[in-house]
């Protein structure tokens, strides 16, 4: 009976490139699929949400100023580090969600490949979405996409990792910063992903991850004046989604609504949901 006692990890929030506990001191219990107690996870408060917005505004300034090439490289780096952690992700997915090893492995592989797919978009979006406009006059006129700003997203409960990567990648690929509210039933992979991000050259604050009660955290963010957009595709409760949409109207936030098809089909349109089109005019003449 010399079984070694496991060294457990304390899971914290991911704000501004750091891993703080909730300032409120609150935690929630996380249990494995078989009911076994795993950890007391940080339960984000309103203050944590506001701190995340402050961090995300700073993160937006550095991430949106990075070259598209650089953003693509950082995103590819995320995929590289995820690959190295793939066994851990498989274990964690099964620990909380159950299911076969094969199924979990497939999801992890798809999540990594999805990140690679988006990484390649970073320096192509402007060419696909931007235009040169043939106006009827002596003007040079062009339109380019720019990131909307701070985007708040709820990570879907299923597929926990692929869904998380999907919402995250489509936000950050164009230079937005993000605050991801982790799924309450699968928060551990989200914090493991934060550890991946922390070692992938992601600028501090460009991505922030909050764990806790999504129904509590999201309304604070939906009504925050410095948040520019909401991705509700991971919100399962339709009443909550309506409430968030209503809150978002206070400062005319862009809202990507939850929809059945959103979870697992990457598309150009999901990326353009968090883009602004800027049009620049200049006269041509001697």
């Amino acid at each position: 009976m010399n079984e070694r006692l496991q060294v457990r990890k304390t899971y914290k929030l991911y704000i501004g490139g750091e891993f703080p506990r909730s300032e409120s001191g609150r935690v929630f219990e996380v249990h494995a699929a078989d009911g076994q107690f795993l950890t007391n996870m940080a339960k984000a408060s309103r203050k944590d949400a506001r701190d995340a917005v402050l961090a995300a505004r700073k993160g937006f300034n550095s991430w949106s100023a990075a070259s598209a090439y650089n953003r693509g490289q950082v995103m590819y780096r995320i995929a590289e580090v995820m690959e190295g952690r793939s066994v851990q992700f498989v274990d964690e997915l099964r620990l909380l969600g159950g299911g076969s090893e094969k199924k979990a492995r497939l999801e992890v592989e798809r999540a990594i490949d999805r990140m690679v797919w988006y990484a390649g978009w970073a320096d192509k979006l402007a060419q696909v979405v931007g235009t040169s406009n043939p106006v009827a006059g002596p003007y040079f006129n062009f339109s380019i996409p720019e990131p909307t700003g701070i985007v708040v997203a709820a990570a879907p409960a299923k597929p926990a990792l692929l869904g998380l990567i999907n919402v995250l990648a489509q936000i950050i690929v164009s230079g937005n910063s993000s605050i991801i509210v982790a799924s309450q039933s699968q928060p551990i992979v989200a914090i493991t992903l934060a550890e991946v991000l922390e070692s992938s050259d992601v600028p501090a604050g460009a991505i922030n991850i909050l764990t806790g009660d999504a129904a509590e955290i999201l309304p604070w963010l939906a009504s925050h004046a410095d948040v520019n957009a909401l991705d509700l595709s991971g919100v399962a409760d339709p009443q909550l989604a309506i409430e968030l949409e209503r809150e978002a109207a206070g400062t005319l936030k862009r809202v990507l609504r939850s929809s059945a098809q959103a979870e697992d089909v990457p598309s150009l349109q999901q990326m353009t949901s968090f883009l602004e089109i800027k049009t620049v005019w200049h006269p041509m003449g001697l």
Partner: peptide
């Protein structure tokens, strides 16, 4: 959304 450089208040159907 619209930046006019050395001009202002120009509109065109081809220009977002």
């Amino acid at each position: 959304g619209v930046v006019w450089a050395n001009t202002f208040n120009r509109f065109d159907p081809a220009s977002p």
